[in-house]
């Protein structure tokens, strides 16, 4: 009997939870705020769904009821993508070691 593709996706999902578990525990506590902002940014990969929805409209009706929701979701997700990655970058730039040349 063939295995339902859903089971494969479920396997990926569960293995990823384990990867997430071990990777996140290794994050140093001083970087927990950047961790939150970067997870925020990457979860906006949901934009792929929004793009599919937005492009589904035919050329006569670009804005059908379902594609409008897609377009709005694109705006929301892209605010998050740019905002999330850039603010993370800004924070990480600030973390500096003790300067030796000072003395």
């Amino acid at each position: 009997m063939e295995i339902d593709p859903f089971i494969f996706r479920l396997s990926i999902f569960i293995l990823s939870i384990f990867i997430g578990y071990y990777v996140v525990w290794s994050v140093t506590p001083s970087l927990h705020t950047p961790l939150m902002s970067v997870t925020n940014a990457i979860s906006s990969v949901i934009i792929v769904g929004a793009i599919i929805a937005a492009l589904a409209g035919s050329s006569e009706s670009i804005f059908s009821s379902s594609s409008i929701f897609g377009f709005i979701a694109i705006i929301l997700a892209s605010i998050n993508i740019f905002g999330g990655f850039l603010v993370t970058q800004r924070m990480l730039q600030m973390y500096k070691k003790k300067k030796d040349k000072k003395k």
């Binding site: 996706r9 990926i12 999902f13 569960i14 990823s16 939870i17 990867i19 997430g20 990777v23 996140v24 997870t39 925020n40 990457i42 979860s43 990969v45 949901i46 792929v48 769904g49």
Partner: peptide
């Protein structure tokens, strides 16, 4: 991509 990311986050 979305499944992996969702699980990570």
């Amino acid at each position: 991509a979305l499944i992996i990311t969702g699980a990570l986050v």
